[in-house]
Computed example of a mutant assay.
Amino acid sequence: MNDQESTTHFGFSQIPRSEKVRRVGQVFSSVAQRYDVMNDLMSFGLHRLWKRFAVELAHIRPGQSVLDLAGGTGDLTRLITPLIGEKGRVVLGDINGAMLEVGRERLLNEGIVVDVIQLNAENLPFANNSFDLITIAFGLRNVTDKEAALASMYRVLKPGGRLIILEFSQVYLPPLKPIYDLYSFRILPLMGKLVAKDEDSYRYLAESIRMHPDQETLKNMLIDVGFERCDYHNVDGGIVAVHRGFKL
Rank of each mutant, 00 (worst) to 15 (best):
N220P: 03
L188W: 04
K197A: 11
V91P: 09
G160K: 07
D198E: 14
V242I: 15
A32Q: 07
V27D: 02
V90F: 05
L194N: 03
L194D: 00
W50G: 14
P178E: 02
I80P: 12
L190V: 14
I84W: 07
I223E: 12
T135F: 15
S65F: 12
T7C: 00
V240F: 14
L157R: 08
I239W: 06
P62R: 06
R104D: 06
E147V: 15
R104S: 10
V242Q: 08
G88W: 04
K197R: 13
V114Q: 06
L188Y: 06
V31K: 05
L163H: 04
V21F: 05
E167L: 14
R244D: 00
Y180P: 08
A121T: 02
R210A: 13
G74V: 10
A127L: 09
G72I: 10
E19F: 00
H47M: 11
F138R: 04
A137F: 05
A148S: 15
I136A: 01
T8F: 02
A32L: 02
K87N: 14
V55P: 13
P82G: 11
L92F: 07
G245A: 10
L157C: 11
V114W: 01
C230Y: 12
N234C: 13
R89V: 07
T144S: 09
H243T: 13
L218C: 14
